[in-house]
Structures are given as C-alpha cells and as structure tokens.
C-alpha cells in the first residue's frame, strides 16, 4: 500500500498527471475517488480496493477523458482493468498516451474466485503475482451438458432476468451510444423477463471484447451466470481467430476489420 501511495504522490507532485483515479476509504466504505494535486493530503487515504468492492474504473476513466480530452490520468488497474484499457485503445475509446497505470496484483483467492487467466497487470505497484487459473471449470461444466440439459439450465437463468440493464450499464467495455438491447426491431419491448435471446445478444457483443472483470455477474440482481457465457465467447474467439482479448500483441479485434483472404470453411449441414 505504501509503495502505491508513494508512486501516486510522486506522479501528482511531478505534475505528470491531472489526477489519479483510485479508491479511497470513506466512512468505512471503499469508494472510487479522483485524487488531484490540489489535495495531496488525501493520498494518505488511498487504498487498494478489497476484492468485494470493485467499481468499473475503466468506465469512469472514459467519462473523465471525454470531459478533459487533453489531460493525462493515472488509474488503478488490476489485470482485468488493464486488459480493458488495451481493448478500449484498440476500439479508439481512449488514448494510450494519456493513461498512466498504477498496477495492483490480485491475491490468490481473488484469482481463484474469478478463474482469472491473468490476475496481474504489466506494472505492479502493490501485491505479488499469484497463480493464474487457465481453465474455467464453470465453462467446462456447461460444455459437458449436452443440448437439452444446457438449454434448460440457461433458460432457468435467463427467465430470472428483470431487464435492469445492470450488466450493460456497469460494463467497462459497453461504450456504444445506441444499444441493440433497446432496439425495438431487435428486442421485444415492455416485458419481463425479456426475450430469451437478450443475454445472447449481449454475449455476441462481448465476444472478443469482454475482459472478464466479472462486474456484470456481481451486479446482477438475479444472479445470472453471465460470466460463464462471456468466458465461453472469448474462448471461441481464441479458438477460431487466435485472438487474445485485451492483449496488445494479437492485433485488432476479428470483428473490427474485414481481413485478408478467408480460410474458414462452412460447416457441413
């Protein structure tokens, strides 16, 4: 924690950044907070957010960047947050030159809970690397169910949906101005639970974009296992296009450009 505070203090003192987006402990609650050079004394209260109190800092950063397009901001990132930033750079939503990372490595129990394949960012200012979880057992379990059983399982989950749009609203990767989930020609309006395809449409959008932060699932009042769906989407994208979501080394998203000659074959009937 001291290492992190020291770095933030130096960043603010050098005037390299207009602010540091991190967490503060306020009245016993860990809350997202923008630390500025104008109030350096607050840095003493800067904390690493505990695992059960997480906010979409990437999303807040996008709003900040929109309001202050010329300013550079430092931001506290976990492995997932950094993947999200990388993906946002690729989609032209943030400028990598205007973001400074303050990295936090997740503890082992957090990585196990998330089944996270990369629980630390490229810069670590707090915590130590732990063992990543390379294979999701939750996905494997559904994979093992065949057809009808999987369908029943998903339908019972989807039917609990109250259409609060919480999954979309908290998602750091949901930056579209118009949303397919609200398009009256693509989705029935005015009924709860929504169309059974509601979560599938979101899963389509999340493929190759979801950075597996898990906020959607934590936020869902109906406890729909959204993460399993998006994890599978990413696994399929990896398998089909060899695309690592949130990595800067595998090029642009396969959905973004038309590409060279296609070598894929249609599936047999």
């Amino acid at each position: 924690m001291d290492r992190l505070r020291e770095k933030v203090r130096n960043l603010l003192k050098d005037g390299k950044v207009a602010g540091y987006l991190g967490y503060i402990m306020k009245d016993g609650h860990p809350l997202p907070h923008l630390f500025t050079p104008a109030r350096p004394e607050e840095v003493g209260q800067a904390i690493v957010a505990p695992g059960d109190a997480r906010y979409p800092l990437d999303k807040l950063l996008q709003q900040l960047a929109k309001g202050y397009p010329d300013a550079t901001f430092a931001v506290q990132v976990r492995g997932c947050d950094e993947r999200g930033l990388n993906e946002l750079y690729k989609w032209g939503q943030l400028d990598p030159e205007k973001v400074v990372l303050v990295g936090v490595a997740c503890p082992q129990d957090q990585a196990d809970y998330c089944e996270c394949p990369g629980p630390w960012p490229s810069v670590i200012d707090s915590g130590n690397k732990c063992k990543p979880v390379l294979r999701s057992q939750r996905v494997d379990r559904i994979d093992a169910l065949a057809g009808e059983a999987a369908f029943q399982e998903w339908m019972s989950a989807f039917n609990k949906c109250v259409k609060c749009y919480g999954c979309r609203d908290i998602c750091p990767m949901c930056f579209c101005k118009e949303c397919a989930l609200e398009h009256p020609d693509l989705m029935s309006t005015g009924k709860v639970p929504p169309d059974s395809i509601f979560q599938l449409v979101r899963a389509l959008h999340m493929a190759g974009r979801c950075i597996d932060c898990g906020l959607c699932e934590e936020n869902c009042p109906a406890d729909i296992p959204l993460r399993v769906l998006y994890k599978k989407g990413n696994a399929l994208v990896k398998e089909m296009f060899d695309y690592d979501t949130g990595s800067l080394t595998t090029g642009l998203s396969p959905w973004k450009f038309l590409g060279d000659e296609s070598t894929m074959e249609t599936k047999p009937m």
């Binding site: 065949a146 009808e148 999987a150 369908f151 399982e153 899963a203 493929a207 399929l236």
Partner: peptide, 11 residues
C-alpha cells in the same frame, strides 16, 4: 460460425 458455436454451448 461463432454464432453456431455459441448457440450450441447454450443448448
């Protein structure tokens, strides 16, 4: 191809 696999996964 992606949609076919996703539909298969969700049954």
């Amino acid at each position: 191809t992606f949609l076919q696999d996703l539909l298969k996964f969700t049954g």
